[in-house]
Design a protein around this nucleic acid. Sequence first.
DNA 1: GATAATTGTTATGGACCATATCAAATATCG
DNA 2: CGATATTTGATATGGTCCATAACAATTATC
Lengths: 173, 173
Amino acid sequence: MTVSKTAEKSSEKPGDAAKGRKDATEAQPEALQLGELSEQLGYVLKRAQLKVFENFLRCMASLQLTPAQFSVLLLVEKNPGRNQTEVASTLGILRPNFVALLDNLESRDLCARIRSTNDRRSHILVLTDKGKAVLARAKKLVATKHEARLNELLGQANREALLGMLSKIANEF
Amino acid sequence: MTVSKTAEKSSEKPGDAAKGRKDATEAQPEALQLGELSEQLGYVLKRAQLKVFENFLRCMASLQLTPAQFSVLLLVEKNPGRNQTEVASTLGILRPNFVALLDNLESRDLCARIRSTNDRRSHILVLTDKGKAVLARAKKLVATKHEARLNELLGQANREALLGMLSKIANEF
DNA sequence: GATAATTGTTATGGACCATATCAAATATCG
DNA sequence: CGATATTTGATATGGTCCATAACAATTATC
């Protein structure tokens, strides 16, 4: 699979005509045949995932939220008062790697760690007011720019079917 | 999104009853609510992709082929005589990162670099006999273990619909 | 024939993932 | 109770993958 994220930096600057372009009489560089690759679910899945993440980042540029950060905010909002281990493991993030992620969100005052009184080892996670506000704006951006674009491309019904199949794979495969 | 690959190392050893398990009278640790997260295409897409790759690796364990390596072999088989730049860019791999990948395949005698006579800068890529044989076995494993499992889970028609939608996202998003 | 562009390569840094380990706090059990 | 084990957040570290800059050899361009 192995699909990088780089944009196909087309070296085609507006001025240079007939450089990469050969007219019909000239031999084409011929694009490669994907062949069975285009039937490999893993390959297509990865390419689609990269595109979706890429678009997500563009939509969120004004808020500077990555998919990972967005998912943390969403989960903490829905489940306030849980500790780091619980939130991290739900997202499939290992506890050591969750620390820096949280450090970032906390330094931006989007989320706060609170020492639990029940268990003074654990840190309870809560969204700050700013965090709630940013998340609300993020949700709107996702809905109006990101998901809307997907609906436009696939249609509402197909989009839901896609989500269902992916969930099935994610949960039962 | 941020979904790690680690298996949920359940600390539930066969012997320890009633440790993590609370009976109905006892307060449950309560799984977190995913909430809107489960509707986020990016999140589900990433989780599904990780599962598929994970399964792919298991199926290919005997041949020691990663998804990336498999895709290179497939592409070179279908397009023999192309150079590194062409193959790499088709797969979305940057040229510098393609070098080590090829070094690996070549050291295992699955693929060969041949200096082009037309353009002595470029290396023409070809599968070795062993490479062809290994790829053939790989294809069989993928078909019988990997894709078969997906068909079983989704059904043939759904699997094709899924592939179509993902391709659309990958190409038109 | 001088200059620019291309190819494969190396070096390097960043992001993400995974494991081991630690101190503090808590749970468990003799 | 008190010794031992476990859990939590954290640090350190190594691996993999992705991205950019730069280089020598070769080729294209003018």
